[in-house]
């Protein structure tokens, strides 16, 4: 039982750090994609192709590139989390009705004010959906990080399998499940309140 807390902490840390980096990269990427149809086509093709590659394979590829441990696991998870965040940012920004942007310009908002006061706030619920998807994917996939020495709850599963320790295996598996469900539940709650209030966000 004593390994559960550090493993859980490691898991949350790895997932949290991956998500943070993915947000920093994915949101600007999505905003960039939203601006040009040509960029969007290329980016979505790339993302589509990348999604076919299994998470474990991505993690395995990291070993020859950056070795084992926390860092390669982080890089792999960031790569995993960027697509849903970037795609939903793009979707959210483009889903804002033209009439609303037209009204914003027509009453005298500058381009910058339109973006910061109208377009981004309205895109936010959709962006948030992407973040939710990414969060659940990252928490689930962070389990696999144990295979390349990234720590986390996956370690309990890997050790449980190696030592035929069913109790450890179950603790790891249940831990991941509960963590993912809890994250999903919290984020959906926030999202529902948002959408209910404005009645927008069509993704």
């Amino acid at each position: 039982m004593s390994e559960l807390i550090p493993a859980l902490r490691g898991h949350v840390l790895l997932s949290g750090a991956s998500l943070a980096v993915a947000l920093l990269l994915g949101i600007p990427l999505g905003a960039w994609i939203a601006r040009s149809p040509r960029v969007r086509e290329a980016a979505l093709g790339l993302v589509g192709a990348a999604r076919v590659v299994p998470s474990l394979a991505v993690l395995a590829i990291m070993i020859p590139l950056i070795g084992v441990g926390f860092a390669p696991a982080l890089v792999a998870l960031v790569l995993l989390a960027i697509p849903p965040i970037a795609i939903n940012t793009d979707l959210g920004l483009r889903a804002v009705p033209h009439a609303i942007l037209d009204a914003a310009a027509g009453i005298g908002m500058s381009e910058r004010q339109i973006r910061s006061r109208v377009q981004w706030p309205l895109a936010l619920p959709v962006v948030f959906t992407g973040v939710r998807t990414a969060t659940v994917e990252v928490i689930a996939s962070a389990t696999l990080a144990a295979f390349i020495g990234g720590g986390g709850l996956g370690e309990l599963i890997v050790n449980g399998l190696a030592n035929n320790d069913v109790a450890s295996l179950v603790r790891g598996a249940v831990g991941v499940g509960v963590l993912a469900l809890a994250a999903e539940a919290c984020l959906s709650l926030v999202e529902r309140r948002w959408r209910g209030r404005w009645g927008t966000g069509a993704a």
């Binding site: 609303i100 009204a103 009453i107 908002m109 109208v118 309205l122």
Partner: peptide
């Protein structure tokens, strides 16, 4: 400047021009 001009002129469009948020 266009923004200053527009702030001085009322502008109403069809139905959905209100900011939903």
């Amino acid at each position: 400047p266009a923004t200053q001009l527009r702030r001085g002129i009322g502008y109403v469009i069809q139905a959905v021009g209100l900011f939903p948020h």
